[in-house]
């Protein structure tokens, strides 16, 4: 496996407030990598730094052997990185179909877009049924599905997911995690999964990172992390 994305000693600030301290991590092609940590640890900040929404004050973000540090968000999306953000951020007054169209905003291959939309509708049949309804009328679980499908419409090579389980019933969460695995298996899409639900995330991930107060404090294979006493105590409630 080869490196797809690497964060090198990244320090990200909000104004004068530092949120990430010397964060280094890497993601290999076709992996599912999980990042777990408590609320406020800096997980979303890490994703926003990758996406070009935030520029690290020092350190570098390397994607496919090139620095993308300081690139604007649209350039990053165009290069194959899509995010399913925390809270889903559905466009509430656009229909489901229009939400999916927005996911493909930078693409011009009409036939490919139509094919990918069919793929998304196969993945989430409920979205196909309700394609002409407004996004804001969907339930939380359906919105999460729409957010994932919208990100897939950009045809990403790296898919970033920010707490997809947040606020959803256990059954729906399991369904969504199955789909995430399926996306990784079927199309080889690399996945960076950020979660507070550490138990599930560590079960589907290959490797994991643990973040506390803006720092990476632990990294290992997910199996090993699941068995780690500190992780068990802090994140698995055991």
């Amino acid at each position: 496996m080869t490196k797809m994305l690497e964060l090198k000693n990244v320090n990200t600030f909000y104004g004068n407030i530092q949120a990430l301290y010397d964060v280094s991590l890497h993601i290999d092609h076709s992996e599912i990598i999980t990042l777990i940590g408590a609320n406020g640890a800096g997980k979303s900040t890490t994703l926003m730094t990758i996406c070009g929404m935030l520029t690290p004050r020092t350190g570098d973000v390397i994607y496919e052997n090139e620095s993308i540090r300081g690139q604007s968000a649209d350039k990053v999306v165009a290069s194959g990185i899509s995010q399913v953000p925390e809270g889903r951020l559905i466009f509430p007054e656009l229909t489901i179909k229009e939400n999916l169209d927005m996911g493909a905003f930078l693409r011009t291959d009409k036939a490919g877009i139509a094919r990918d939309m069919e793929y998304c509708f196969d993945l989430f049949p409920i979205l196909a049924e309700r394609r002409n309804q407004q996004g804001g009328n969907l339930s939380g679980g359906e919105q999460q599905m729409l957010a994932i499908a919208r990100a897939l419409m950009a045809r990403p090579r790296l898919l970033l997911l920010d707490e997809p389980s947040m606020g959803l019933a256990p059954l729906v969460v399991r369904q969504i995690f199955e789909i995430i695995k399926k996306i990784n298996k079927e199309s080889g899409t690399t996945i960076f999964l950020v979660e507070q639900n550490a138990n599930l995330a560590l079960k589907i991930g290959h490797r994991g990172y643990v973040m506390e107060n803006g720092k990476i404090v632990l990294t290992d294979s997910c199996e090993t992390l699941l068995a780690n006493e500190d992780v068990k105590r802090a994140y698995l409630g055991l």
């Binding site: 953000p85 951020l89 559905i90 927005m102 930078l106």
Partner: peptide
């Protein structure tokens, strides 16, 4: 026009789908 609607509804998400 669609980019305008998306930006009006959620600017952050509009940026995340690649809208300038």
């Amino acid at each position: 026009g669609k980019a305008m609607r998306a930006t009006a509804q959620n600017r952050k998400m509009a940026m995340l789908v690649g809208i300038n």
